[in-house]
Structure formats: C-alpha cells, structure tokens
C-alpha cells in the first residue's frame, strides 16, 4: 500500500471514530422520540434544547464556562510564559523539583484538589465565585501550559533573540519581531489546551463552584435522567471547543 493511500485510510478511520459518536449525539439531541429497534428517530424536534435552556441553567452555565475558560487561558499563558522561560534555561537550582511541584495538581483527583482549595477559598472569601472557579481551573491548566511552552523556549529561540539584540533591536522590539512570531504555534497549542482543560473541568468545579454552574456540572445529571437534553447540551458544549480548535489551528498555520 502506498504511503498516500495508507494516510487516507488512517484519516478515514480517525474520521469515523470521531463521527460515529457525534452522529448519534446529533440524532439524539433532535430526537423527540426514538425507540429501539428503529435506526432513525421517529419524531425530530427541539425539545432537548428547550428543556436545557428553558428550565435548566444551561444559558448561564454556557456563559460561565466560556468566561472562566477564557480567563484561565489568559492567566495560564501569562503565568506560564515566564515560568517556562526560567525552567527552559535550566539555570534554577533544583529545576526538576520546581517542575514537579508545578505538576503536583495533576497527580490528584480534581475533586479532592478542589475540595482542598475550597477550604482556602472560604477563608479568603472567594468561595462560590467565578474568581474561585478560575483559580481552581488554573491549578490544572497551568502545568499543561508550562509543559507545552517549555518546548518552544530553547537554544534556537535564544540564538535568534541574541541576533536581534546585536542587530540593534530593543527588548520590546525583540519580543515583537522575534520571540512572539517564533513562539506563536507553541502559544496557540498551550492556549487551546488551557481552554479545553478549563472548559471540561468537572471535579474541581463541583467542589469549588457551588451556585456557579458550568456546562459539565449542568449536563451530567441529564445523562442519567434525560438523554435528549444531555445530547443537546453536549452539542452546545462542543461548539466553543471547535471554535477554539479552529482559532488555534489558524494561529499555528504558516509557523516560522
């Protein structure tokens, strides 16, 4: 089999793997009536979305989720950038230990980490606030952001920055002309992952965000009680992720 055909086959297989559950989800979301053994729904309609946005707090949850995820992305990139820069130079005493400490939240079940954070947030007066949610999510998104950004900060970037300095570029211009363009694909990937980690966060949101619904929190109860509403919410859930993926892909194109 030629390289090309094999590539096509893999692409088709991957597409099917992604499309099969998605197709069911779409059908289910619009199936006002769908009884086995029928292959297709008997009645199509908007009931799933009406229930989700009518009686449920899906609207507020969607807004919360997007807002929190955007804030988490911004904070993770802003904090992760200098952290990755310092870690990447390997000049810190105990570089490995620092990195391990940053990654510790990933080793804990999110609900437990969130539970621990709640105790602190209550004392700080930010429990059940969006700020609390954002900080809890940052705990999980930041290690990923640092890990990805680290891959971009290396000898090659440093050598280009040195060149720019000797060419007379001030630190600000060096950042604009060399560092950011070189780091753009890495930034896009780190941003996407931060967004998705926050957007799909369930355990820590459950522990920290009492009274502040996010999409996963609203969706999960429906999985057991009303699969049509759950499917409708899943589609709503998917949309911002696809947009984030698209934006990230655009930023990664024509890399250096």
């Amino acid at each position: 089999m030629s390289e090309r055909r094999r590539g096509k086959l893999i692409a088709v297989a991957a597409g099917l793997l992604f499309a099969a559950p998605l197709a069911v989800l779409v059908l289910q979301a619009f199936a006002d009536s769908w009884r086995a053994p029928a292959i297709l729904p008997q009645v199509l309609g908007w009931r799933g979305f009406e229930v989700a946005f009518g009686s449920g707090d899906a609207g507020e949850a969607l807004a919360n989720s997007i807002l929190v995820a955007l804030a988490v992305t911004a904070i993770s990139l802003a904090v992760g950038w200098p952290a990755a820069r310092v870690l990447g130079r390997r000049r810190l005493p105990r570089n490995g230990l620092v990195f391990l400490l940053i990654a510790v939240p990933l080793l804990m079940p999110p609900y437990l980490a969130g539970f621990g954070l709640t105790e602190w947030f209550i004392r700080l007066g930010i429990d059940s606030t969006l700020l609390g949610l954002i900080l809890a999510h940052v705990t999980f998104a930041l290690p990923y952001a640092i890990l990805i950004l680290l891959s971009g900060f290396g000898r090659e970037l440093e050598s280009l920055e040195e060149m720019a300095s000797t060419a007379g570029a001030s630190p600000g211009r060096r950042l604009r002309w060399v560092t950011v363009p070189t780091m753009r694909p890495t930034l896009a990937a780190a941003g996407l992952l931060s967004f998705l980690v926050s957007f799909s966060q369930y355990g820590s949101s459950l522990a920290v965000g009492a009274g502040r619904p996010t999409l996963p929190i609203v969706m999960l109860p429906f999985v057991q009680t009303d699969s049509q509403v759950a499917a409708a919410l899943a589609l709503v859930f998917l949309a911002p992720c696809v947009i984030a993926l698209f934006v990230s892909a655009r930023l990664q194109r024509s890399p250096l």
Partner: peptide, 12 residues
C-alpha cells in the same frame, strides 16, 4: 554588528 557561526535568519 555580529555574524554568528550559524546564519540565524528569521524564517518568517
């Protein structure tokens, strides 16, 4: 001005 061992050109 400095010329390095590698060209160090900006590929973009």
């Amino acid at each position: 001005a400095m010329v390095f061992q590698e060209p160090r050109l900006l590929p973009n």
